[in-house]
């Protein structure tokens, strides 16, 4: 990777919020992903653990902090307090429940309104293990996701299907976005224009096997 010499190997810290209606499985999903369940050190306090995940994509190191507010969905006005400054959002619906899909649309609207295009969106249809009871068609969901510039995934947290990909794809897009913002910044400051070209080279095409390096 020639670019690696130029691209600063800086660590990306990304905040990712999990949004979606109650009971669509977002907590199982993220617990499945970070695989730490309740961290030992939280046992005494019994708090929901602060969910973090470190991964490496290409030569980029990424720290994800994943915010889950399962159970607080009904506290209505908390959204903005919770999602501000996030780099990515994972909007989950239950494929057997059309209402939960509508709720995702509402979230997308609100996030777009409040955070513009800076936030990367991933829409997830969870509970593919209940395919027989499906109420939200894949086409509808994918079409919608495309129309709002989001990626769409189908997962089953229960069977651990498709979970890794969700976070990997989102992380890549967040890196891309961060690079884009860096490049814009650099383009604005003429002094460092020479390095800009090198940095735009993205490494995401490498079939990155994320190196999971534990957590917290």
């Amino acid at each position: 990777m020639a670019a690696s010499a130029v691209a600063s190997p800086r660590v990306h810290d990304f905040k990712v919020v999990l949004l979606g209606e109650g009971c669509v499985g977002k907590t199982s999903l993220v617990l499945r992903y970070v695989e730490n369940k309740f961290n030992e050190k939280h046992e005494s306090t019994l708090q929901a653990s602060f969910l973090t995940k470190k991964l490496t994509i290409g030569n980029r190191r990424v720290n994800l902090s994943i915010w889950d507010t399962a159970g607080q969905e009904r506290f209505h006005a908390l959204g903005p307090i919770y999602y501000r400054d996030s780099n990515g959002a994972i909007l989950t619906y239950d494929i057997t429940d059309d209402d939960s899909f509508q709720k995702v649309k509402n979230w997308v609207k609100e996030l777009k309104k409040m955070l513009g295009t800076d936030i990367m969106l991933t829409i997830i249809g969870n509970k593919t293990d209940l395919e027989k009871q499906r109420n939200v068609s894949v086409e509808t969901a994918e079409q919608y996701a495309e129309s709002v510039g989001a990626t769409h995934f189908q997962t089953s947290a229960k069977l651990n299907r498709g979970v890794e990909e969700v976070f990997l794809d989102l992380s890549r897009r967040m890196i891309e976005q961060a690079d884009k913002q860096d490049a814009e910044k650099r383009a604005l400051s003429p002094s460092s224009r020479s390095t800009a070209a090198g940095n735009v080279v993205l490494l995401e095409e490498t079939p990155a096997a994320p190196i999971k390096s534990g957590c917290c």
């Binding site: 907590t27 309740f38 019994l46 929901a48 653990s49 399962a70 159970g71 607080q72 506290f75």
Partner: peptide
Amino acid sequence: GFYKTDLIHAYHAYLNPAERERRMAVIEQR
């Protein structure tokens, strides 16, 4: 709010029913 999140996490994190029950009871008691 966050105690509710704690409860849901406890529910999903502890697979042993007795342990889960105990954990959740402690959170509720709080």
